[in-house]
Design a protein around this nucleic acid. Structure first.
Lengths: 244, 244
DNA sequence: CGCCCTATTGAACTTAGTCAAAAATCGTGG
DNA sequence: CCACGATTTTTGACTAAGTTCAATAGGGCG
């Protein structure tokens, strides 16, 4: 038996991992660090050589534009691999802040190198994961570039929902978003005021409901239609990966 | 001496490659295929097992939304690695069309697997490249989500310019965009009409000029400021990669 | 030369942003 | 456990950026 790490557990959902592979991944999480809500984990333009696995809580990556506006690039959930940009850039292209109290596990990029050298199958998985993130980005790009405010809110909610469900089987039709409407707006390129109007409208139409912070998706099919949303977590195909 | 491939040449600009590595990469380009302008290389939702290296010409990836509008996800230039999404998804999440007459080199994803297994350093490079694309996506995300039409046009032009310059040293301050204003609009989430107004305005302000299709950047510094643009091709740091 | 695609321009219209203020919630210290 | 201050949500009136529609003008190519 091998201690399972948060991240390995996540990857193992896609492809069975050998004990050696699991152990190697677990080593990435040897140094858990607690961070408080609002704490800055990485500041844009600062030198970075570390990546992180998020074990608990929520983290966001974002940039601030010269006029002060913020674009949230991605919201991270437990099991996510954060900060892969530091594998290429010595200065962080984006900031990282904890959206809730969280536990992150930092490790040096040289650890990634060793992982890639010693475990080709893990290398492949990381490569795939990175490609999956790229697709998630393009989905959001299409959302921001070509869909209405309502569509963006709908697809954003569905995306958060589906991503949370990857690691939490207890979720069926509702979830704690734990984001302010301002944060939602900064994710999908809207003002908080307009996000509010859209949420309100969707609530009145019975598409969603809210009870103390929890969001209930009442009509998933219709939401997918409104948001032009595609769940990418289905129909992944990793069978072609090397067998260990 | 080893035959250099387009893609290997590109990677070798970042990190010196061994002959064996170059040869392995060159094998990816064994089957060049000519495609005409407008030809569909990959259709969304169709089963795919192939990736491509673009050797010549221009290709775009895009999606069409239910209302018929199009979002161009990325414009590809010679030396680019296209379609990495098919490493995870069996159905293509995006379409690929040639923007000009082009030469693409398709290869099966199993070839990628072998590459990852046999050449850890190449695996690392592919991983990095994928991360670089992710950062490029986040830049565009911030552009679409939080900047004005003029800023988007400015940063788009600069991005195209800098990417072309990576492989073409002869470019100093002007380039052939070879995109219609409609295609520009579909890339940055604007209508062709509004793209035209912005280009026109920037021309009147002396920021850019145009002579039969060619775009001249007259005031790069000011354009970067307007577009909140960061050139990501500088300050890449790959020194930590395994030595071969 | 005529056709088709692209660029350009103007006018009217829409969506989302801005500003401001009130109401509701949350978190914290006492 | 409650009160208070701070944050977040909600709403309305007004504004602005970008879209839509439509028509004209160029340009390239068979």
């Amino acid at each position: 038996m091998v201690a399972t790490s948060c991240f390995a557990a996540r990857l193992a959902k896609q492809v069975p991992l050998s004990d050696a592979e699991k152990k190697a991944l677990a080593r990435l999480e040897e140094n858990p660090r607690k961070v408080k809500r609002g704490a800055m984990i990485q500041r844009v333009n600062e030198t970075v050589t570390e990546l992180f696995v998020l074990r608990e809580g929520r983290v966001m990556s974002f940039v601030i534009l010269p006029d002060g506006s913020r674009q949230i690039l991605r919201v991270y959930f437990p099991g996510d691999f954060i900060g892969s940009a530091s594998t290429i850039y010595s200065k962080a292209p984006e900031s990282l802040v904890a959206l809730s109290d969280a536990i992150v596990c930092p490790f040096d990029k040289h650890a990634v190198r060793r992982l890639l050298e010693d475990y080709p199958r893990v290398a492949a998985l990381l490569f795939l994961l990175s490609n999956a993130e790229r697709v998630a980005m393009t989905d959001r790009l299409a959302s921001l570039g070509r869909t209405s405010a309502k569509a963006r809110v709908a697809s954003f909610l569905l995306d958060m929902f589906d991503r949370l469900r990857v690691t939490d089987d207890s979720i069926t039709d509702s979830f704690d978003l734990k984001l302010t409407q301002e944060e939602i707006g900064d994710s999908i390129g809207l003002t908080s005021v307009h996000v509010n109007r859209m949420i309100r409208q969707m609530e009145q139409e019975g598409l969603i409901s809210r009870t103390n912070g929890r969001i209930i998706l009442n009509d998933m099919a219709r939401l997918e239609e409104i948001g032009h949303y595609t769940n990418r977590h289905k129909d992944m195909d990793l069978d072609w990966l090397p067998v260990s």
